[in-house]
Design a protein around this nucleic acid. Structure first.
Length: 480
RNA sequence: GGCGGCAUAGCCAAGUGGCUAAGGCGGAGGUCUGCAAAACCUCUAUUCCCCAGUUCGAAUCUGGGUGCCGCCUCCA
């Protein structure tokens, strides 16, 4: 099997081959830190967290870079409003972003470059573009000349002539679509010295400078929301390829769909966003990830207030299947029973289906929705097995159950991050033995029809975060 | 106006030429059970926005229409 990726550049699924050996370089457009981190920011971060974990699982050596655009009009505006330095705003919200992502279980990227720390690289790049004739100086501004780059518009499939209409014919721009690489400083703005006078980088140049710096020419993946295709990524391509003289700047372009609220894009400017921290106050991170991964990454994802409550049941079923399974394994110590072969064969088949289904789904353009379905299928099988097979199990059955638990742990936990690890002391011998004792005493109470005592024990355990279930196969406990 | 995308059950959502149109939620019935909880089983789209066409065969390809979304200004 091979990994297939839908490339925005070609609008087709393509087989993935890394630029170099088994190394994979990924650049994901990060946030402009000027206000609270919302769910729309979380989406690409969670997606790439999952993609990266899956690639690593498949043996790739992954380098992930995600920038902070810490120099920007909105940051400056906010800083002026609050009367603090722009850098303080950027730092505060970058911190908020990282905290939010940590809480969502997003593994840290390898690099989080800041524009403000790469000014020399940017100046270098702009100068080279001028020297090569792709850019020109106008006053203290520097513009990229789109007419000098014949394939401009390839990513977004737009012709230069069609773009002209929407563009503000500009102050000193030779062509309306030309975009700023460097902006002359205005009073009260942070600025840096440059060969063209004091100023700051234009919007798109930072991603080119930093991605090339950390990942080199022609790196593997570039990600971001579909709203970045034009002009941001289009401009990145133009300036990067003009600068390096090599193409492609990026080998596979991936764009995720946007989160919508009532059919409109969730965004700061529309004010219709939920912050990640608000969500985390009410929902476990695994559930939030489950929601974000429940549709294919390229589809738009509708959010509303009850959304997480709606998906919660399914998510709980998946998790409780895993908890029930690990508890059953932990409670099974002798392995001297006998389980009918058909049951074991059926479970074995389910393991194979899950493994192939999950990997196949992920390799088909990171189809997380389908991958999750493979876990649901496994959950049904393990639940059935545990409901029907009478303990004690035999060694072979126990081994199959362990394999199933491993699939939940690796696929659901390590890769997707939607399955929680069972309670704090799942393997603790003392907990195990104490529970055995409590369950035994409760069973005696039930046997003499002292249900008040039996129910009291069950209630107290529940308060402690342990659920007891009286099944036909005996009493089982699991962490809540 | 230009460009790109989407439309599958009550809801969410896979599927992009051919086995019974995945999976989840919700709903109905059932099994288990002292109760509870959990779980399992059965049912819940003769049909994929509409109309033409290509094909032995289409949700899937082509053309047209309708509706919605995104981008063209900052945006994940």
């Amino acid at each position: 099997m091979a990994l297939k990726i839908y490339n925005t550049m070609t609008r087709r699924k393509e087989e993935f081959t890394p630029r170099e050996d088994n190394k994979v370089g990924i650049y994901v457009c990060g946030v402009t830190p000027y206000s609270d981190t919302h769910l729309g920011h979380a989406l690409p971060s969670v997606l790439w967290d999952v993609f990266r974990r899956f690639l690593r699982y498949r043996g790739y050596d992954v380098t992930l870079v995600q920038n902070f655009t810490d120099i920007d009009d909105k940051i400056i505006a906010r800083a002026n409003k609050e009367g603090v330095p722009a850098q303080a705003i950027a730092r505060r919200y970058a911190q908020d972003y990282l905290e939010s992502m940590d809480a969502l279980g997003v593994e840290r990227a390898d690099h989080y470059p800041l524009v403000s720390e790469h000014i020399p690289h940017i100046i270098d790049m702009v100068q080279t573009l001028i020297d090569k004739g792709f850019a020109y100086v106008e006053g203290g501004d520097v513009y990229f000349s789109v007419e000098k780059f014949p394939s401009y518009g390839r990513l977004s499939r737009q012709r230069l002539e069609d773009l002209v209409e929407g563009e503000s014919a500009g102050e000193g721009k030779r062509h309306p679509v030309d975009f700023a690489l460097w902006k002359a400083a205005k009073p009260g703005e942070p600025s840096w010295d440059s060969p063209w006078g004091p100023g700051r980088p234009g919007w798109h140049i930072e991603c080119s400078a930093m991605s090339l710096h950390y990942l080199g020419n022609c790196f593997d993946f570039h990600g971001g929301g579909v709203d970045l295709i034009f002009p941001h990524h289009e401009n990145e391509i133009a300036q990067s390829e003009a600068y390096t003289g090599e193409e492609p700047f990026v080998r596979y372009w991936l764009h995720n769909g946007l989160i919508k609220i009532k059919d409109a894009k969730m965004s700061k400017s529309l004010g219709n966003f939920v912050t990640v921290k608000e969500l985390l106050a009410e929902h476990p991170p695994e559930l939030i990830r489950f929601f974000l991964l429940s549709a294919h990454y390229r589809s738009p994802l509708e959010y509303h207030e009850d959304k997480l409550a709606e998906v919660r049941r399914g998510w709980e079923r998946l998790n409780s299947a895993y908890k029930t399974l690990t508890a059953a394994i932990a409670q099974e110590r002798e392995a001297d029973g006998e389980v009918p072969s058909p049951m074991k064969e059926s479970l074995q088949g389910a393991l194979k289906d899950c493994r192939e289904g999950f990997i196949g789904a992920m390799e088909d353009d990171f189809n997380t929705a389908l991958a999750i379905a493979a876990l649901f299928d496994l959950a049904r099988e393990t639940n059935t097995f545990l409901a029907e097979a009478q303990p004690p199990y035999d060694a072979e059955a126990l081994e199959l159950l362990r394999e199933a638990a491993e699939l939940f742990r690796v696929f659901g936990g390590e890769i997707l991050g939607i399955v929680q690890e069972p309670g704090p002391a799942g393997d603790d011998k003392l907990v195990q033995e104490l529970l055995d004792l409590v369950i035994e005493l409760r069973s005696q109470a039930r046997a003499r029809r002292d249900f008040a005592t039996a129910d009291a024990i069950r209630d107290r355990l529940r308060e402690m975060g342990i659920a007891l279930e009286d099944t036909s196969g005996g009493v089982r406990w699991r962490w809540l």
